[in-house]
Design a protein around this nucleic acid. Structure first.
Lengths: 156, 156
DNA sequence: GGAAGATAGTTGCATACGCAACAAAAATCT
DNA sequence: AGATTTTTGTTGCGTATGCAACTATCTTCC
């Protein structure tokens, strides 16, 4: 395969790629400095927060939180130890488990958010006008939805 | 701190964030399927390829390849075992080491590129016009350069 | 010139994550 | 209903990566 790929798209990719890693690392560093959990915890907790009844089945959460199923199992282990979520059996499906956000989980989300928000503002949003932000949102919506439920990664 | 952060910037961040992970995972999966090294290898090799005399000092390479110094040490260990680079003492500074790209390293870069390029095209570029790509390049250049040599992460 | 401090790269240890293999429970097919 | 296949979540194992601590070397300052 040799799809058309104008030079400017490569340039865009490169900038996008390095920006992402730098911003991501900076945000993670801010969270660590504030002794807060990392973004992977935030992502999982936030997805649960948005979900109906604040609970999601493990595989659904894995997809939302951009993790493999095994990765999610481990993450949920830790979140459960920290009392931020609880595992609950699923009545309709004996194989399945719900991850249920606890009040402490909501509270943790509220502690993380100001720091995360400040990072987004400092490292990302400052450099973008509202019109640009709107464009980014539109463009990356296309990119993300084209890949939808990511391949869900083989087995894992 | 409570920096101004209009909702649209948050939306932009979210889309950017999930797009990135999905595209990244898809590209890595393509590379793995083709039995090629992962992007971190590519990044390091490519930075060396661009460098004068195809060599860079370890810490410079760590910065370019978006890794901690310890992370880079390990990566270079593996690249050296694979004969893709060589470590060379630095005459001007007895503490320093050069990582020097080998011919085999260049060859490997050439094997990876078509697959990487196809991934960029399929998962990223398809969704963007040239004008949009130009905008992305411009916007993320601002984002990336504002953070310049990333904090270089403490010690490690 | 020598001591104190900074810097380059490496190593020990801990953590995060994925894949493959697995057990249990559906779902499907006959 | 019973056998086969699929799906769900977990576990074993390997890998990637960061931080802190370390050594060797360079720099600075007296």
């Amino acid at each position: 395969m040799k799809p058309s790929l104008p030079e400017i798209h490569l340039e865009a990719w490169r900038r996008y790629y390095v920006s992402f890693w730098r911003v991501f690392a900076a945000v993670e560093a801010d969270l660590a400095a504030a002794e807060l959990p990392s973004l992977s915890w935030y992502d999982a907790l936030y997805e649960l927060y948005l979900a109906p009844e604040r609970r999601l089945r493990m595989s659904a959460l894995a997809r939302s939180a951009l993790l493999s199923r095994s990765g999610l199992t481990r993450l949920v282990d830790k979140l459960e130890q920290a009392r931020l979520i609880e595992r609950k059996a699923c009545p309709e499906d004996g194989r399945a488990q719900y991850a249920q956000l606890t009040d402490k989980g909501v509270e943790t989300l509220r502690k993380i958010w100001p720091v995360y928000r400040a990072g987004i503002a400092k490292y990302f949003a400052t450099h973008l006008s509202e019109a640009e932000a709107r464009q980014i949102a539109a463009m990356f919506t296309r990119v993300a939805t084209a890949m939808q439920p990511p391949p869900v990664g083989a087995t894992g």
